[in-house]
Design a protein around this nucleic acid. Structure first.
Lengths: 204, 204
DNA sequence: GGAACTATCCTTAGCCC
DNA sequence: GGGGCTAAGGATAGTTC
């Protein structure tokens, strides 16, 4: 990779300008590779890079980056649901969570009706935002739960009704969700969206 | 770069197995590059790849990929706010939007209080989810608007108060999980959103 | 058993001193 | 233009589900 004499030190480049230059070059290289991977191998690729200066660079192999992010969220969501479901047969646990979620939802609803956006300051808005996010999470996980359990669930693999239903999700599914584990590099399977007919497509 | 005879054809590889093998190799190469870019140049990188078979591969230079996705969402949001603001003059336009958002919020609130999660089917939940998502977007963009305009806004550049340390934002901004923004990478300024720096590259 | 994916060996193309 | 190095292709033999 680095055509330097001998070894390459894999640590932050100290010199500011040099770092900036290398950033540009490597970034172009990376984007090119990403593009090639997508085209040659028919993969769906999304790439986000924030420069050290905070500038955003993005690449997406499909029409919109958001659609790949949606796919990702959906993927993760499905995975979580599965994990929860075969973690145990603790259904009462589940029911309890449902009740709790419901009461929180109600609470948030009450606050919403007496909300006046124009009079709120940033802090209040922040709180509101947080609450909405929670509500969203509950609704979402409940939905996933339903969708999953309504299917004949074989043994371990959630074969989500490929594609078909996916479309109805896209718009709402996004908006950041919770739950994350793993950092770098993971791999998981989820069903088998027929090659390239899922949501995104629209090949460049 | 491709050691093929002569030129590389930039189109989908037809042979299935060959495509698969190349996918693996190129993917590893890409991930490696992404890693190097992040480390050497101190950039925040997020990479999502779906194999043609639907398997997910992810890379993130920080602890959680979600956090980068959040950054992205926030960034985009801010950019939109800016665009709206210096579409400018048209403040009444803005006010109108605010009013409208408020009424929608109220509507959603009403529905929320009479919601019973346990009795909803997937479809209804989907609708609820969508509404919540919209509400969230409004709240969020309103907040961004406030935060932006409350600063001395020079001419075109929104220097948001460095979400980094001061963090009036961080907390709620990522409803994801809060707990890990300081990641392990050091200074991330996210100053200047509004710059044309999106998906250039992709030449070939 | 088969499909998707990975690893290994060997070779070549492209880069940068 | 050659030396050193990396990315990547061909082929093929594992590995996992």
């Amino acid at each position: 990779m680095a055509p330097r004499r001998g070894r390459v030190e894999m640590r932050r480049i100290e010199d500011r300008t040099s770092r900036q230059v290398r950033f540009s070059k490597r970034r172009s290289g990376l984007f090119k590779k990403a593009f090639e991977l997508a085209v040659l191998c028919d993969a769906e690729v999304a790439l986000l890079v924030f420069s050290p200066g905070g500038k955003l660079y993005e690449f997406s192999s499909v029409s919109s980056l958001e659609s790949t992010l949606d796919r990702y969220e959906t993927f993760m969501n499905a995975e979580n649901v599965v994990r929860k479901l075969d973690d145990n047969g603790q259904n009462h646990d589940e029911e309890f969570a449902l009740l709790e979620a419901n009461s929180k939802l109600l609470e948030i609803g009450k606050r919403l009706v007496e909300t006046n956006l124009a009079e709120m300051n940033a802090e209040e808005l922040g709180k509101l935002e947080e609450d909405l996010c929670h509500a969203l999470k509950w609704a979402r996980s409940r939905k996933n739960q339903l969708m999953t359990s309504s299917l004949n669930r074989p043994q371990k693999e959630v074969v989500v009704p490929t594609t078909t239903t996916t479309t109805s999700i896209t718009e709402a599914e996004r908006c950041t969700d919770g739950s994350n584990d793993t950092a770098a590099e993971g791999e998981r399977v989820w069903g088998r969206p027929p090659s390239r007919a899922a949501l995104g497509d629209v090949d460049t």
